[in-house]
Design a binder for these strands. Structure first.
Lengths: 251, 251
DNA sequence: GTAGCAAGTTGACTTGCATCAATTTGGATG
DNA sequence: CATCCAAATTGATGCAAGTCAACTTGCTAC
């Protein structure tokens, strides 16, 4: 239905060039010596461009590849038999999607483009072949996966121990620092995801997210209008995330 | 009361013998060809035996090794600056502890023996060297780490969407199937962890765990006396874990 | 423009679980 | 076996966040 302005983006050669990619200091090339970069380029495929809401893969898709976000952003979630959804992560340019699926025949989650998004595709069979030859790349993959486990543990911590305000403050700060690493403003950004996704990710009701946003706004900590967010008082936000800890130490 | 000769212990010379280990079908050897087993044995170190409550490592320990549980069981948890603890997992014989730490210089969590526990130690530098040479082992490591991410996502799902009863039913069933895979009774076992650990892991108060246990007992679903648990009606337990899903489908 | 619908906000009410407090149980120790 | 202390249980009460419902805002399409 939507008649998408189909080729607005610079024409994309079939092969991706990691050397020229602006994300090379965030993405897989980061791990690789200059002169081995070519070998990564040999296996990476320029993925398609996805429109907002399009699935990159879902839980019924056979697992073949991991995807690096090139532009835009991606949300992953698991859908249970009962049809409930749990958002498991948001991915920004340079981040690798699909690591959780390395253990099975199908993807372990569903990945959806949150906005117009382009990706690079790394077929796992070839990737594993290459990691076998490049110890640095192998090491980096282990690091990435370890980091993914830790992120997920942090999420569990957040979900089981923290209040609504603390969870949302944490998310805002996490986004902030990730934007910063991508050389975008850490205090002035546009949320790639809807309130609904935030709520689901943080284990809250949408209404609660909405209320906390307005509460923060009334306190002058943030200014939010729709998806546009400005962090007015980062220190206050950091303070909120440690609220729990402070309370426990006082006594 | 419990004479906790729970898991068959393998004879332990200083060098571990993976070939003779009764866990070889659960642990790393599972991935390796018969004639490559020796190379794994070359790098594995027979770890010490830890008494209940002893730390195997903690967050200040420099990360050097992953540990396979040989007998006993281990709990991992992250401790925040504020001193709160979040239990991130329980590990049984054949399972690998420390994968979440692959991304940093120190361990990402603290590992504690829940009972008298012995482990095998795999120094990561040597392990990575070996995975570079044995594609099957590398593949298996990726699988394990992927599985770990998934487990953690499942935990997040549990924490954010499920009630106290559902969480506890899930844990009991998870333990049950893991005992079964180790050729122990899936319906009659002794919990390796205290109520406190269960509560912390599942994001509940101890009191709630206690109440749910007695509720299940009154409903004739389980019989629990201290750490000894008997699952009387596994189907009912499975039903409980899907409670949420059912409710949502009905309408 | 304005119709139509999804996304977001706000208020009133409900509830599951935490918290607090008081026992009880159980395993270790001399 | 009596003592001690940690772990577990049970009951009473309060609250943070969920639910339900009404309303507003902001797109998108025609």
């Amino acid at each position: 239905m939507a008649q998408p302005i189909r080729f607005r983006q610079a024409a994309s050669p079939l092969k991706a060039s990691c050397q020229q990619c602006s994300l090379s200091n965030l993405c897989l090339p980061l791990a690789i010596e200059e002169n081995d970069l070519g070998r990564l380029e040999e296996i990476v495929q320029q993925g398609r461009i996805y429109n907002r809401g399009e699935h990159i893969f879902d839980q019924s898709t056979p697992f073949r590849s991991c995807f690096a976000v090139k532009s835009g952003s991606v949300k992953t979630s698991i859908i249970t038999e009962g049809g409930e959804e749990q958002v498991t992560g948001f991915f920004m340019p340079g981040e690798l999607v699909g690591l959780d699926s390395m253990s099975g025949e199908s993807y372990a989650c569903t990945a959806k483009a949150l906005e117009r998004t382009s990706v690079c595709e790394f077929p796992v069979d070839k990737l594993e072949e290459l990691t076998g030859k490049l110890p640095d790349l192998q090491h980096h993959m282990f690091r990435l996966m370890g980091q993914e486990i830790q992120n997920s543990h942090q999420l569990a911590l957040l979900l089981s121990k923290n209040t609504a305000e603390e969870r949302i403050a944490s998310l805002l700060l996490s986004l902030s620092s990730r934007f910063q690493r991508r050389r975008m403003s850490p205090t002035n950004f546009s949320l790639p995801m809807a309130r609904n996704d935030i709520a689901n990710f943080l284990g809250l009701a949408v209404e609660t997210v909405s209320r906390v946003f307005t509460r923060f706004q009334n306190q002058g900590i943030i200014h939010a209008r729709g998806r546009e967010v400005e962090l007015l008082d980062v220190e206050a936000l950091q303070l909120v995330t440690r609220e729990f800890a402070r309370q426990n130490c006082q006594q």
